[in-house]
Amino acid sequence: MLKTLRPALLLFAILSLLTGLAYPLLTTALAQALFPQQANGSLIEKDGQIIGSRLIGQQFSGDKYFWGRPSATSPMAYNAGSSGGSNLGPTNKAQLDAVKANLDHLRQAHPTQTAIVPVDLVTASASGLDPEISLAAAYYQLERVAHARGMPLARLHQLVDDHIIGETFGLLGEPRVNVLELNLALDAVK
């Protein structure tokens, strides 16, 4: 019995050290050396204070800010500890009611807007934490934000254009804007 137990325990100890200690230490060291910003959460600081992450959306509701995608997390919006979509299908009554409420809210906030409402302004993402919106969603909100800030529309349009994030690796996804970074840039405009 001891003859068969000893190699099993030795193999268990070796694999535990390799997979439980050596591998995590190596991957952490490589991540910190090669991608320190991303490895530490892509945090955004303002005046020495951490105010958010490039990876997690935040709630903006004032007229002078661009709004992000709705969040399906609970018990509050953009709760990173509760990441996940609503898992409601496109024909589910609760999903339809949520989209209709979001649509009504957008139409009230943009009464003169005649363009089609971009889908990412009325539906939550799969994680419920999406920090970015499409260019169509940013451009849809230009008049409201410009009016609330007393800012020329052309200047605001240029600010959005200056914050465009292109396709990943030049071919994946579509151009988009990080809402937190755009709103911080807005606050920095004199």
Rank of each mutant, 00 (worst) to 15 (best):
8 A>S: 11
13 A>D: 07
157 H>G: 06
5 L>M: 11
2 L>S: 11
88 L>G: 09
2 L>W: 10
145 V>K: 01
98 A>G: 03
60 F>S: 02
156 L>H: 05
70 P>F: 01
172 L>V: 14
184 L>E: 09
130 D>A: 14
183 N>I: 03
102 N>Y: 00
6 R>K: 14
42 S>E: 10
68 G>Y: 00
34 L>R: 13
3 K>N: 09
82 S>F: 01
53 S>Q: 09
190 K>P: 13
3 K>V: 13
26 L>D: 08
66 F>T: 04
118 P>K: 01
123 T>C: 03
134 S>L: 01
73 T>V: 00
65 Y>V: 04
93 K>D: 15
158 Q>N: 12
142 L>P: 10
91 T>K: 08
62 G>H: 12
5 L>G: 04
5 L>R: 09
74 S>H: 05
26 L>G: 08
28 T>W: 14
171 L>D: 05
47 D>E: 13
31 A>K: 06
89 G>T: 14
146 A>Q: 04
47 D>A: 15
153 L>K: 14
78 Y>I: 02
113 Q>V: 06
189 V>Q: 15
1 M>S: 10
141 Q>K: 03
158 Q>C: 02
159 L>H: 06
89 G>C: 11
55 L>H: 03
181 E>F: 00
30 L>M: 15
113 Q>Y: 05
49 Q>G: 04
64 K>C: 03
88 L>W: 04
152 P>M: 05
52 G>I: 10
147 H>E: 14
88 L>A: 14
24 P>F: 03
25 L>T: 12
174 E>D: 05
89 G>K: 10
121 L>M: 05
133 I>Y: 02
131 P>Y: 02
177 V>D: 02
148 A>G: 05
92 N>T: 07
96 L>I: 13
87 N>R: 08
13 A>M: 12
36 P>A: 08
128 G>T: 02
96 L>E: 14
146 A>V: 05
110 H>T: 09
32 Q>P: 12
143 E>V: 07
86 S>Y: 01
30 L>G: 15
78 Y>Q: 01
174 E>L: 10
185 A>D: 06
82 S>E: 06
40 N>K: 13
80 A>R: 06
